[in-house]
Design a protein around this nucleic acid. Structure first.
Length: 987
RNA sequence: GCCGCGGUGGCGGAACUGGCAGACGCAAUAGACUCAAGAUCUAUCGAUCGCAAGGUCAUGAGGGUUCGACUCCCUCCCGCGGCACCA
């Protein structure tokens, strides 16, 4: 018998498997199916590394095992070849990414084959293949159709090194997920996928995934970040009195006026709303003097006019001989014509205004103009603003010309409010201030809140400073709290507390409503702010009677145990009951509205790079955003020489005029292609579906084949994809399920993450550290079977392990011994019999391996093989038993066992064998050792027949010398007996 | 700060549902074979006291429950991962 020569036999078997296509998955087989998936790799220039090996080997063991168990197994692989590394590598080498990618794939595939992986390569896919990305583009258009893909301008994460925008998920600790560069903020027009529309469904789906690790589910749950709370609306302190003037042919009971009055009543605000004389045939003289005589004006008056009422208001303001607080105009300042005809009342009004005079007596001016207004055009609002100053709100009313029953925009102009989101309304009796984030929309213009000129200058300065700061600087925890007082006060409806309103950068514009109600007694940040600005600290949750408000130890445990105080009807409740009660109360009173907030943001889907799927959109001046017609898909990447990223926020594709310019599919006019490409994660968001039907030219995959194969039974992959690929692909699958395009709501029944493989020094493997272990060197030196088994032997699949070459020899020695043991058939003949000990050991091993593979405990399988071998190597054994052993070993070390099977003279391949069964009665030896304890201390062991009862064990135990010794002065009071295991005598 | 996971010999790790802690492997030591080295084989291998039989202490620390705790409960320490001025 020759020596075990792995490189020789492994090559032979690998070639045999490929040539004879041994691992093809058959569609619609009568066997039950198993779809075993492992994350497909990026074909990088450096080749596959130990990190790839780990899940591939585990998945391969599992797949080979399931085939023997009688399942039709789909175990596919492909290439996730778009994206930055491929492109950066290509840029560095000066070769087109399509060429380097093809080379890298060839190399990686060679590696995979050398590891003896049993992939079905007939279903191989490649995300950069136009036949594949045609469907990625098509799927994008499905999102567009349903309004879940949209273009918007926003401040996004920008990697200055990779020169592209990033999704929130791609920013890890403020750094680019790919290159580790500090991420910056940049305002860009980008495509987004509306993943937030699926926040709730993604969360709900997690509850159905019983075979996912809790840690993965929890991480996704935290990322989605559902928060239930309440948006509380606060009014500002307001001692104004309003004069409301209705328009032509109107009266105080028409259109929105009754509603407006009742809303002002609700807020306890004073107003006068006169019926103007002769509303059908108004004259300036009559209306203006009527208002001046019948309404009272003082410095707190806000004059409001709608339509013609606005003209009257301006005329009234001209004539007043003292200052008023403000002037609000909703339409009505039109010049001569109405629907291109002279207005009936035009001749009776003087349309010249003394703008200077009006400006000088009014504290603030707001002009509400509406693009949908049929009577007064928006341009006229702009002209008026030019003359009067103030703020122009181009906001649309509920109905054109503000003629709805309810016009919230007008109410907002008259009496602004702040909305604060909180998850802790139970502490609201302790609110003592309000903070607006610098980005808050009410701070866009001084007039929005009518902030004093002097204060406004301070605020503007503060806003500028906050905006120029990088986010992580601004949010650094050690930072002192800063802010500016606005001069305004908000009123807490619960107790009429006058809460000063501040602007401070510790409140972030993109969180909640961008405004916070400050409860310094029960929030650390609010407390720090209150200390900085000498604001009152009120405590409303008390742990016990002695706890009287030392504030330096706000902590959650204490709050959980505390009860409400100083909170009127909440007093005595715990914080949870108080929260529920006050939420209901506030909603009933109209103070606020219960809301659900998510941390999840929409998925930024544009990348300003060359090597990605072009987004299949055409921009037309007349038709706007036009999807590329399906018949024109795929939109292929142009094959060009220059594709360096520009860094300007524009895609390198933008300069390729020949490609960009295109006829609008709708109107035929010259239009422009969208030049951004899709992110790395696009192609992988649906790839497993393609495996079920990889050659389909009519659809991304047929629902019929999906119904046989999906969902994926086990998905092997890395923990690092939990809030990236794993979340994204669940989103796509759920969306496609809702469109009836896929057959299961969740794509993956079971997720099996693996721990990362560290270098021998316990550090992350990296070239710069010089601790990278190349799997190919191990293959060369020890063979793939040793590599596979040693990798599994390192530790539990989910645990982080360090690759230490030192231990490899142990596995190699084991395989050497197996080789010798099997081949040493000299003293065995076909009719030799296995000893009973060996037979029982084999049954035990069968049980152990079967159960451990099913539970993904591969490391203990390897130990069990070694243990078995140590135990039976000197026992009599028959060939049938050896073969059974080889079958058990087959998933782990397929090359050597197939070879050994041949030497035994067997003609059929081991892989065609059925997985062995075990006999439960053969698991335990006939005679077992039972541990004898006295008071829980081991005194010795006795041998009894398996299944012996307590009496027999006790009598044998009492014979033991050490037991006798212990019993000299005592008697047995109690006996604890565990069958076949232990007997404990308590004395 | 919050959430999750973990801490066992010189090292990687076993230990079922609370039942002999340290399986299996590496390294180490001694021996056999060899002119020698390597490979292989045999034996030893948690600490400690003891000539030995045997005893004592040991699963991050301290306490508790139990006949019995690596395993369950409480407090604390350390490491890793996620989130984070998130309201």
């Amino acid at each position: 018998m020759s020596k075990y020569n792995p490189s020789q036999i492994e090559k032979k078997w690998q070639e045999y498997w490929q040539k004879n296509q041994q691992f093809l998955a058959k569609d619609f087989s009568k066997k039950p199916k198993k779809f075993i998936l492992v994350e497909f790799p990026y074909p990088s220039g450096a080749g596959l590394h130990m990190g790839h090996l780990r899940p591939y080997v585990a998945a391969d063991v599992y797949a080979r095992f399931q085939r023997m168990k009688g399942f039709e197994v789909l175990f596919p692989i492909g290439w996730d070849a778009f994206g930055l590394p491929a492109e950066n590598y290509a840029l560095k080498m000066g070769v087109h990414p399509s060429i380097t990618t093809a080379q890298n794939i060839k190399n990686a595939k060679k590696q995979m084959l050398s590891w003896g992986l049993s992939f079905d390569f007939s279903r191989e896919i490649n995300t950069t293949d136009p036949h594949y990305y045609k469907w990625t583009q098509w799927l994008f258009l499905q999102f567009l159709k349903k309004g879940l893909a949209y273009e918007a301008t926003g401040v996004i994460n920008w990697c200055p090194k990779d020169k592209t925008g990033l999704a929130n998920e791609e920013v890890i600790n403020g750094e680019c997920e790919r290159c580790g560069t500090k991420v910056e903020k940049k305002e860009l027009k980008q495509w987004y996928l509306k993943i937030t529309a699926y926040a709730e469904k993604l969360l709900e789906g997690l509850k159905t995934l019983d075979n996912w690790p809790e840690a993965v589910k929890l991480q996704q749950k935290n990322w989605i970040g559902k928060k239930t709370g309440i948006n509380i609306t606060y009014n500002f302190e307001n001692n104004r009195n309003y004069v409301l003037l209705h328009g032509f042919n109107g009266n105080p009971e028409g259109i929105f006026f009754p509603w407006l009055k009742s809303e002002l009543d609700k807020r306890g605000l004073r107003y006068q709303c006169p019926v103007l004389p002769h509303p059908n045939a108004p004259t300036e003289e009559e209306q203006v003097s009527f208002v001046l005589q019948n309404c009272k004006f003082d410095e707190n008056t806000v004059l409001f006019g709608h339509s013609l009422g606005a003209v009257v208001a301006m005329k009234v303001a001209e004539k007043l001989n003292h200052k008023i607080a403000g002037l609000i105009l909703a339409g009505g300042f039109s010049t001569a014509t109405f629907r291109d005809k002279p207005r009936p009342f035009h001749s009776t009004f003087n349309w010249e205004f003394d703008y200077k005079r009006i400006k000088s007596i009014t504290g603030f001016i707001k002009i509400l103009s509406d693009p949908t207004d049929y009577a007064i055009r928006i341009e006229q609002g702009k002209i008026l603003q030019k003359n009067l100053g103030g703020v122009l709100w181009e906001s649309a009313g509920e109905k054109p010309h503000f003629t709805s029953e309810e016009e919230p925009v007008i109410l907002k102009a008259l009496s602004p409010q702040i909305v604060c989101f909180t998850t802790r309304p139970d502490t609201n009796f302790g609110a003592t201030f309000v903070v607006l984030g610098p980005e808050h929309p009410l701070l866009k213009d001084r007039n929005a809140l009518n902030i004093e000129e002097k204060k406004w200058k301070e605020i503007e300065k503060y806003k500028q400073k906050a905006g120029s700061q990088a986010e992580e600087l601004r949010t650094a925890e050690t930072r002192k709290k800063t802010g500016v007082f606005t001069g305004l006060y908000a009123i807490n409806q619960l107790n009429n507390y006058k809460m000063p309103v501040y602007v401070a950068d510790y409140v972030l514009g993109n969180v909640g409503t961008g405004a916070v109600v400050g409860v310094p007694g029960h929030d650390k940040r609010d407390f720090e702010f209150a200390k900085e600005f000498n604001l009152e600290v009120k405590r409303v949750v008390q742990k016990d009677a002695n706890d009287i408000g030392s504030i330096d130890h706000i902590d959650k445990v204490q709050e959980e145990a505390g009860t409400m105080v100083n909170s009127e009807f909440l007093n005595g409740l715990n914080i949870h009951d108080a929260t529920a009660k006050i939420m209901d109360f506030m909603e009933a009173q109209g103070y606020g509205k219960k809301v659900v907030n998510y941390k999840l943001r929409d998925w930024v889907f544009s990348r300003q790079r060359y090597w990605g799927e072009p987004i299949p959109i055409i921009h037309c001046e007349d038709c706007g955003i036009v999807p590329v017609p399906e018949k024109d898909l795929p939109v292929k990447l142009p094959n060009v020489k220059k594709y360096e990223p520009t860094g300007t926020g524009e895609s390198p594709l933008a300069v390729i005029k020949k490609w960009v310019e295109v006829k609008c599919p709708k109107c035929g006019k010259l239009a422009w292609r969208e030049t951004n490409t899709m992110p790395q994660w696009a192609g992988s968001s649906w790839y497993w579906l393609r495996y079920t039907d990889p050659k389909n030219k009519k659809a991304f995959s047929s629902i019929k084949k999906q119904k046989y194969w999906t969902p994926v039974d086990v998905y092997f992959g890395g923990m690092e994809h939990t809030t990236l690929h794993l979340l994204y692909s669940r989103f796509w699958n759920q969306f496609l399920f809702d469109q009836g395009l896929v057959s299961s709501r969740e794509p993956y029944m079971m997720r099996k993450p693996h721990g990362i493989v560290l270098g021998p020094d316990g550090e992350k493997m990296s070239k710069s550290r010089g601790n990278v272990v190349d799997p190919q060197i191990v293959v060369k030196k020890f063979g793939a079977d040793t590599l596979r088994m040693y990798e599994l032997f390192l530790g539990p699949h989910e645990a982080q392990v360090s690759w230490d070459d030192k231990g490899i020899v142990g596995v190699k020695r084991f395989l050497d011994r197996v080789w010798k043991w099997t081949a040493d058939s000299g003293q065995r003949t076909a009719d030799s019999k296995a000893s009973e000990k060996a037979e029982r050991a084999l049954h035990r091993l069968t049980k152990k391996i079967t159960e451990d593979i099913e539970n993904f405990r591969f490391n203990t399988c390897i130990s069990a093989f070694m243990e078995f071998h140590n135990e039976v190597k000197d026992e009599a054994i028959d060939e049938a038993s050896i073969k059974k052993f080889l079958i058990l070993l087959y998933p782990f070390a397929p090359h050597i066992v197939e070879e050994l099977n041949l030497t035994l003279g067997n003609k059929t391949l081991l892989q065609k064998e059925k997985w062995p069964e075990f006999d439960a009665s053969m698991i335990v030896d006939k005679e077992v050792e039972v541990v004898v304890q006295v008071n829980g201390k081991v005194k010795g062991k006795i041998k009894v027949a398996a299944g012996s009862g307590e009496e027999q064990a006790k009598s044998s135990a009492l014979q033991l010398e050490p037991v006798k010794k212990s019993l000299v002065n005592d008697s047995v009071k109690r006996v604890i007996f565990v069958k076949d295991r232990l007997i404990n005598l308590v004395i």
